[in-house]
């Protein structure tokens, strides 16, 4: 099923004829042992995500959505199955290589921003660069560029506590872009924000997707997000319930609303 859908896609202006699969999972299963009770968080997930795609992932809590995110973000290892990020098998990597992968290939955006509280906006952005070995001067220059991109150039010296939620999330986006990642993993980025600031964040994400061709995988319950994404994916009971193009979903949503 996954292969079918992967080949059906491709409408973004940057996405050329040659489609590259950026993240691919094969038979992904994850079981947790909690006090002698075996919990199956994932029961065999096969999915392929193209480069430059904007995909929304939905599912009720406890559906295994978070586990799925941890797997494709190289934050956790599956019990059975494999995760390929840019065709590299994550299970084969050493600790140093994993750190490199997280640093350079994936950008993480969290629901509660997770900015480092004692760093300024600029320092937050340049920290991943420093981890990646970028020299301080260059990092500062690039950090300011990225902050400019999210519209926070003037507030580079502010600490998270001095910024609003929307601004913090924008800094978090800037931080995730620090090392030009191929994939942005967003875990409900607008859940903690009001309608207007949420829209700002969505706009930034869309711009990144269309202008820079960054692949965006986004867990969300936000309807606006569903409107602009390329594909939608539902996870239920540790399995992929459905994957559909946006156009198909529109009809469905309408019909649900109509009921």
């Amino acid at each position: 099923m996954a292969e079918n859908i992967a080949t059906e896609q491709g409408q973004s202006p940057d996405k050329n004829a040659e489609k590259r699969i950026i993240i691919r999972t094969v038979g992904l299963k994850k079981t947790y042992m909690m006090k002698d009770v075996l919990t199956q968080a994932l029961r065999g997930v096969d999915v392929a995500i193209d480069q430059g795609e904007f995909i929304s992932v939905m599912g009720p809590s406890g559906s295994g959505k978070s586990t799925f995110f941890n797997m494709i973000g190289a934050l956790d290892s599956p019990t059975v199955g494999r995760v390929f990020i840019d065709e590299v098998d994550v299970a084969q990597l050493t600790a140093e290589e994993l750190a490199y992968l997280r640093c350079h290939k994936i950008g993480y955006i969290f629901q509660s921003y997770n900015l480092i509280k004692y760093m300024t906006a600029l320092e937050n952005v340049t920290t991943p660069m420093a981890f990646g070995g970028v020299l301080p001067d260059e990092a500062r220059e690039r950090g300011m560029e990225i902050l400019d991109l999210v519209g926070l150039k003037d507030r580079w010296h502010h600490r998270p506590i001095e910024m609003s939620g929307g601004q913090q999330q924008r800094v978090a986006i800037a931080r995730s872009l620090a090392n030009n990642p191929s994939v942005l993993l967003c875990d409900e980025p607008t859940a903690n924000l009001d309608v207007n600031t949420g829209q700002e964040i969505i706009d930034i994400l869309v711009r990144l997707n269309t202008e820079k061709g960054v692949t965006i995988i986004c867990a969300t319950h936000d309807h606006r997000m569903m409107n602009i994404c390329d594909r939608l994916m539902w996870i239920r009971d540790g399995q992929i319930d459905r994957i559909a193009n946006r156009d198909d979903v529109h009809i469905e949503l309408a019909s649900i609303d109509g009921e």
Binding site: R20, D86, E87, V88, L93, T94, E96, E97, A99, Y100, L101, C103, K105, K117, Y118, M119, E123, T127, A130, F131, G132, G133, P136
Partner: peptide
């Protein structure tokens, strides 16, 4: 298909490590 290079992550420089540490201490004074 092009296979990307995965390198070893370098060590963070000592001055930066110091700065992050001292900033952290100052925050949780």
């Amino acid at each position: 298909m092009k296979v990307i290079n995965i390198d070893n992550q370098p060590w963070l420089s000592m001055p930066r490590t110091m700065k992050i540490t001292t900033d952290g201490i100052r925050y949780r004074l």
